[in-house]
Structures are given as structure tokens and as C-alpha cells.
Design a protein around this nucleic acid. Structure first.
Lengths: 187, 187
DNA sequence: TTATTGTTTCAGAAATTTCTGAAAGTTCAG
DNA sequence: CTGAACTTTCAGAAATTTCTGAAACAATAA
């Protein structure tokens, strides 16, 4: 593996975006490298290519491991470990969504639920609770929905995405055929 | 407005989640406060309730303004400005999605497009370009799709969300009736 | 105009996050 | 067991982000 200007710009960009995607610069760079490298890379090589310390590489790989985004492999007769990005592009996207849901939604949902259980001590709290319940319901809907989308096959998801806002048409169409089983009025 | 334990826990939680949602602690706290307060609050009151400096409040409100998440109002005969969260829960969610798309997706899409235009200088770059093209296409699909979802009415979106993975059934169903007009093959 | 009441800006302080590198840990061949 | 090759950990250093508070700015009333 060699750092060419093209590869550098990709890797560094992922480093910079990293923080927006929920991991730090190094983690982003390491991942970018593993994704575009045809061959698996060893920790040492990663450190050299990126100009970062060995310890930092180790921590970055650990983090990527917790996201289940890397695969470790071995070459026959070699002791060191080689790392590679794991799964298809769809798998990656799924992992990232899932991980972010865990970090960004779940803790909030759980807190909001707790607050909803409390008794409101005064009118201000009562108002707050109403707002909190609205937020909770919305987040819960989004969470459940994205989860169920993730269980669809990539092909179905693709169909759905290609529909775009045309999905509105499909819904009307569905409503007509299902008649009283209007899904919007259930739940 | 008074800080009760319930309100505190909500506000502080939003502060902590802030960084995961793309803004800093103070911004998260301020927003939480504005959302659950029935009355609009002035900058001073916000600072006092949260125990943060006046300057910090001003910067936080500016940031929220750039996200179009606050509304400024005035009381008759008062010179100072009162702030309030803006729009419905759906509007908020939309704003947050949109803002994040701008920050997290658009710059990456643009970089990937540029790289795809370049000539690959060697087989390594050729492989990298293939991966980059895959990523680009996926991100572009997701971006376009979420954009088109945002243009649906809250009611339609709700219907869609309630369908959950049942959307798979609807797609099959649609395919059958539309026959050759397979939506997956259009676009 | 000046005084008053408010908001914004921004340099430096404080807090937080990330990174380094040396030491400790692990694994395995001999 | 010992030593070589590799990985992980973690205390403190470096970099980055956030926050403060004083000064500058704005709007209005008198």
C-alpha cells in the first residue's frame, strides 16, 4: 500500500469527518485506509502510512472492533495480525446506523421514559412532561422504523430508496386497496 | 421558569447528548430549556438557570439560530429579547436531519465525486476508486431518499413509519399491480 | 446628547479530548 | 524455560474545543 495524493485526500477527509460521524480523526483515517486497501494491513504499516504512533493505532483498531467494522486475518507463517474492513458497503452503513442509534437515541429514550413516569410537581413540570412525551414518541417511532428498515434486504431497501417521494403515491394506492385497514388510523 | 430535579435531568441530559448530536453542551442545554419552557426566556434568565456566562448564552443562541431552531419574540414595553423553540416536534427533527446532512454528507459526497473524476495512476488507485464509487452511490441514494422523505407530510411519514418492515409487503404488492412499471427499475 | 439596558465579540483561561511512547503483556518457537 | 515478535495499556503531553468576562457595540428614552 502506498499513499498517493488521491488516497491521501480520501483518508484525510475521512479523518476530518470522523468527529461528525462519532469517532475521532485517527479512527476515521484508519478505517478509510482499510476500506480502500485491497490487501489487509498490519498495525505497523497503518501507523507508518498515517504517521501516527503505534499505541494510537492499537486504540483506533480497538474502537473499530467495537463497531464491528474490522476483520482480523493472519498470513501463514506470520505472527502479526492483518486488518481489513469488514462486510459490504451496506453492512458498513448498517453498522454505523446501529452504533449511532445506540449512542444517540437509546440513552435519551430511556431517560425520557423515566421522566414520563414521574409525577408532575407543578404546572411547569406538567407542561414539560407533555413536550417530553411528544419527543419520546417521535424518537421511539424513528427508532423502531429504522430498526425495521435494517431488517429489509438490500434489494428491497434499494427499491424503496429509488421510489423516493413516490412512496407517497404508493401509500395512497395501498390505502385504497386495503380500504378500512388504513395504517395511518391504526396504532 | 424554575429548575426542578425533573427539568434538570432533562436539560443536563440534552447537554451531554449534544456532542453526539453535533452541537456542544451549552447549546444542548439551552435548547432543552427552550423546548420545555412554556414561556419564552430572556438571555439573562437562561444564563442564570444554567449557571453559564452571558457570552456563552449569546453564542449558543446564535448557533441555535443558525440551525433555525429558535424564535425571538418581544414583550410590549420591554427592550430585551425573549427566546423560544420554534416549530413542532416534526419541524425540529427535520431541521436536525437537514443540518446534519449538510455537515456530514454533502462535503463527503463532493469529495468522492472529485476523486471519481480523477484518472487512476496504478492498480491500487483503481481498486480504491471502485470502493469510493460504491460509497458515493450509497451515500447519494441515502441523501436523496431522506430528502424526499422530508418533503412528505407528517401524516404520510407517520403512515410509513407505522408500516415498519411491513413496507416490504407493500412493495411486493405494488410490484404485482404495477407489473412492468416496477419502481425499482425506473429513476 | 447622555444614560440605561440590553446584546455581541473575542482573547485568553479552563476543560476536554486525543496522541505519544515507554513499559507491561501476550504468544509462540526453540 | 527464554527470547523474539508482536500487541495493549496508560500516564502525562499536546492539541482542540469550550467557556468566561470585560470591552465594544446597539437601541432607545429622556
Amino acid at each position: 500500500m502506498q499513499m498517493t495524493p488521491m488516497i491521501e485526500s480520501f483518508v484525510y477527509h475521512f479523518g476530518e469527518m470522523g468527529s461528525r460521524w462519532g469517532f475521532n480523526r485517527t479512527v476515521g483515517q484508519i478505517y478509510a485506509l482499510l476500506v480502500i486497501s485491497e490487501q489487509p494491513l498490519c498495525a505497523n504499516e497503518i501507523g507508518e502510512l498515517l504517521g501516527i504512533s503505534r499505541g494510537n493505532v492499537s486504540m483506533g483498531l480497538k474502537e473499530l472492533g467495537s463497531w464491528q467494522l474490522v476483520q482480523v486475518s493472519h498470513k501463514p507463517g506470520e505472527r502479526r495480525e492483518f486488518y481489513h474492513s469488514r462486510g459490504s458497503i451496506w453492512d458498513m452503513a448498517n453498522r454505523v446506523f446501529e452504533e449511532r442509534r445506540k449512542r444517540e437515541m437509546d440513552p435519551t429514550l430511556s431517560l425520557l421514559r423515566d421522566i414520563m413516569m414521574d409525577e408532575a410537581a407543578n404546572p411547569e413540570e406538567a407542561f414539560a412532561q407533555k413536550r417530553i412525551a411528544e419527543i419520546h414518541d417521535l424518537l421511539e417511532n424513528i427508532t423502531e422504523w429504522t430498526q425495521s428498515l435494517q431488517s429489509l434486504s438490500p434489494e428491497k431497501l434499494n427499491t424503496l430508496m429509488k421510489l423516493g417521494s413516490g412512496v407517497g403515491k404508493v401509500l395512497e394506492f395501498t390505502d385504497k386497496f386495503l380500504g378500512k385497514k388504513d395504517p395511518a388510523k391504526e396504532a
